[in-house]
Every structure is written in C-alpha cells, then in structure tokens.
C-alpha cells in the first residue's frame, strides 16, 4: 500500500472514531448514558494509524487497552453496533452490558477488557505475549507508564525479546495534572534504558508509519506518541479549545475526498445510534 493510500485509510478509521465519540458526547449530555465515559476524541490518530499498519501486515495481535478504549476498539474493527449497545447497557453489547465505557472487550478482534487499575494491562499483555508467542499491542497513557509494575513489564518484555508493541498515548495530563508536575524523565528514555527500541513522536500518521514499518512484532518496541485529547478526562465536557487537532489537520490536507468520507461516516454513525436508541 502506498503512503497516500495508507493516509486516507487511516483517516477513515480516525473519522469513524471521532464521529462515534461525538455521538457519545451528545448522549452523555442528554443523560441517556449515566455512567462514567472516557472519550478518546483527539487521540484517535494513534490507534487508527497503528491499526492500519497492522491490517496491511495482515496481523491479528492481542490487544490490551485501558479505560479510554473506544477508538482502539473501533480502529481495530470492533463491531460498532455492539459498542453502542454496550454504552446503552444492553445485553447485546460487546461486553454483555457489563463493561460500560471503561471495560470494553471484543473476542472478535482479540481485545481484552480493562478492569480499571491503570497500567495492569502492560503486565497482562507481556504475560499473554510470552505464553502465546502471539504479536501483542499494549496501549497505555502517560500517567499509567509511571506505575512501577509497568516499568517491570517493559523490562521483562525486553529481556525476553517479545513480539510486542507498547504505545503510550501521551496527552500530557493525568486527569488534570501535567507531566512536568509528576516526573522529570521521558518515557522513551526509560524504555531505552531497558534496551527497548523506543521513540517519542507526535501523532502524524507518517511518523507512526515510519517507526513501525520495519520492526513491528519482530522485537519489542516502545512508542510514546504525543497527542491532544479534546474532551474531559471523564464525561462529556470541554475545558478549552485544542489547537492542532490531528483529525482537522489531516482532513484539511486530504481535501474534498476526506470531507466526503467524514460526512458519510457521520451520517452512518448518527443513524446507527438512532436505530439502537429506538430498539
């Protein structure tokens, strides 16, 4: 696949995630969804870019996400209707109505649900990868990478040379506490100290593509991807307008074709939500 095509395909995935999250935002404000939701709008380019690379490589990794998992689920091909149903607490949801927003799961795409202890998925991902020898992706946040057990997991993955990818979706905040108030080290440097191939990049698809195209699942890799979350840590709200939203920039760059894709997906998602709410 050419890079141009990759970029457009990635946009399609990201657009699906963004439109989905916008609909969830509405439903939370309408009080149709009444439990905590963790929206990933603004950060969707991270899982979308990776999912597209994985798809092109015809791989089906084990996926260990955390609480902010809607975009991971959708990017890797999770069933949209089942996610809507999950957020509506229905038994037909991807986690049988038990998972809410935080603990979503999909056997179809090998995505393991999260229980709420930040960074635990790094340990489980490493264990699952070691014991199955299957390619594995672990998604973390810039806060959970500070957990001591995450660091121990990175170390063991390096020691055992596992086919695993660690992804830190770094939006600079732990709820509302900035990184500079929490630590004086970079995750990439720590990962490198454990002898992992490690990178610190922004969420441009070309950057993600370029660091993963060669060694993905051939050795353990760690990428810290700087990104921007649009909405609150939990729930549906906006503190301030975010400058440099990746989806907006990509849409502008890709032009009319992207505009059309985005608008079609928006309609599709709106209709799906409407249908599920009427059921």
């Amino acid at each position: 696949m050419s890079y141009k095509n990759y970029r457009l395909k990635t946009f399609e995935k990201a657009s699906l995630c963004r439109n989905f999250e916008n609909e969830v935002f509405k439903r939370v404000n309408e009080k149709i969804i009444n439990f905590p939701v963790y929206l990933s709008a603004g950060q969707e380019y991270v899982p979308s870019s990776i999912a597209q690379i994985v798809k092109d490589k015809k791989q089906k990794p084990l996926i260990f996400g955390q609480h902010r998992g809607h975009s991971i689920y959708l990017s890797f091909g999770g069933n949209i209707v089942e996610l809507i149903d999950e957020l509506l607490g229905k038994k037909t949801g991807c986690t049988g109505g038990m998972g809410g927003s935080l603990s979503i799961n999909s056997n179809k795409i090998n995505m393991f649900g999260h229980e709420g202890l930040m960074g635990s998925n790094a340990c489980m991902g490493v264990g699952a990868c070691f014991s199955s020898a299957k390619p594995t992706i672990v998604f973390l946040g810039d806060a959970s990478v500070e957990e001591d057990y995450v660091l121990a997991s990175l170390s063991w993955a390096a020691k055992k040379e596992l086919p695993i990818l660690f992804v830190v979706e770094d939006n600079n905040y732990a709820v509302l506490t900035e990184k500079k108030d929490r630590r004086d080290w970079k995750a990439k440097d720590v990962a490198k100290a454990f002898k992992l191939e490690s990178y610190d990049i922004d969420d441009q698809p070309k950057n993600i593509f370029s660091v993963l195209k060669k060694n993905l699942f051939k050795k353990p890799i760690f990428i810290n991807v700087n990104t921007k979350r649009l909405f609150w840590h939990s729930g549906a709200g906006v503190d301030e307008e975010v400058k440099g939203d990746r989806l907006t920039l990509e849409k502008k760059f890709l032009g009319k074709k992207a505009e059309k894709i985005h608008s079609n997906i928006k309609k599709k998602i709106e209709n799906l939500w409407k249908q599920r709410l009427e059921k």
């Binding site: 393991f112 635990s120 489980m124 264990g127 057990y149 121990a152 997991s153």
Partner: peptide
C-alpha cells in the same frame, strides 16, 4: 518453568496474561 523477575506486583499480572491465553499456569 519460568523464572520471573523480582517484581512481585507485575508478576501477578504477567501470570494472569499467561492464564488468559490458556496455559493454565
């Protein structure tokens, strides 16, 4: 027989991962 690192908290998670993929550890 797998020697784990001296990282007790992480180890419990790693064994959970092994169990999730059916190795009955």
């Amino acid at each position: 027989v797998i020697e784990l690192p001296m990282a007790d908290v992480a180890n419990g998670g790693m064994v959970t991962g092994a169990a999730l993929v059916g190795r009955r550890p």
